[in-house]
């Protein structure tokens, strides 16, 4: 078990939240770079698998790629170079770099601190941190039923394939895909009604009971140590940010 996994889930959540806030709000590139370094250190401490983490990051980069490429050419400012007669500005490039660094730093920190947590553990930690019960239950219901809905989607897709359906362009394909998603909605709605019925059958009247012990154990030595280390790291990020602006 890595050091991070031995921490109280609440410590991990708080550290991730504070880090994300500091990283996003601090104005200078240098400070954001320090933040990225801290996130990588946290990932090493959490012993994240390198390959899988890079793959997850890659999907994030793909999402941002268009914005990052467009920014230097769309933000007005001091011209740096030109490509096919379009001027790239220094300000735009800085903004693109800043967004890339921030997004990756926050993503890596989240993978390291929260990524390996099971949904029930995360839900319980959120509750004990005072997050609204409704939000937590919405989150837990989503994690519980996502796989059920995915199974239903897969079954429907399989049934379509079994009758020689192939995705092509054309009205037949679009209509069939429309039917597929329509049916998925109908089934989800019916499923929700059945779940509600099942809950009422077991005495549910709108209030969720909890089986957790309310013994509010204080933070352990490990949590205090980790908290001190992260506080020092965040102080460094902020100090660099203040010094460079």
């Amino acid at each position: 078990m890595s050091l991070v996994e031995r921490l109280d889930p609440r410590t991990r959540l708080l550290a991730a939240l504070l880090f994300a806030l500091a990283e996003v709000l601090v104005p200078s590139l240098a400070a954001q770079g320090v933040g990225l370094l801290l996130a990588v250190i946290a990932a090493l401490v959490a012993r994240l698998p390198v390959g899988a983490t890079l793959r997850r990051l890659l999907s994030l980069e793909g999402f941002m790629l268009l914005v990052l490429v467009m920014l230097p050419f769309t933000v007005p400012g001091h011209p740096l170079f030109s490509l096919w007669d379009v001027q790239a500005s220094e300000e735009g490039l800085r903004q693109a770099a800043s967004i890339a660094i921030k997004a990756n730093a926050v993503a890596v920190a989240l993978f390291a601190l929260v990524g390996s947590m099971e949904a029930p553990v995360l839900g319980r930690a959120l509750t004990r941190l005072g997050v609204s019960g409704r939000f937590v239950h919405l989150f837990l219901f989503t994690t519980r039923y996502l796989s059920v809905l995915e199974d239903e989607y897969r079954r429907l897709r399989l049934a379509m394939r079994a009758r020689a359906f192939r995705p092509t362009t054309g009205p037949h394909c679009w209509r069939s895909i429309g039917h597929l998603f329509g049916m998925l909605m109908v089934r989800s709605l019916e499923r929700a009604e059945r779940i509600d019925a099942a809950m009422r059958c077991r005495g549910f009247t709108g209030r969720f009971p909890s089986l957790d012990d309310e013994s509010q154990a204080g933070p352990g030595r490990l949590d205090l140590g980790f908290g001190a280390a992260s506080a020092a790291g965040l102080a460094l990020v902020i100090a660099v940010g203040v010094a460079w602006t």
């Binding site: 839900g123 519980r144 059945r194």
Partner: peptide
Amino acid sequence: DADDQLFCP
């Protein structure tokens, strides 16, 4: 369908 009934984590 037991999936309707088991909704807790």
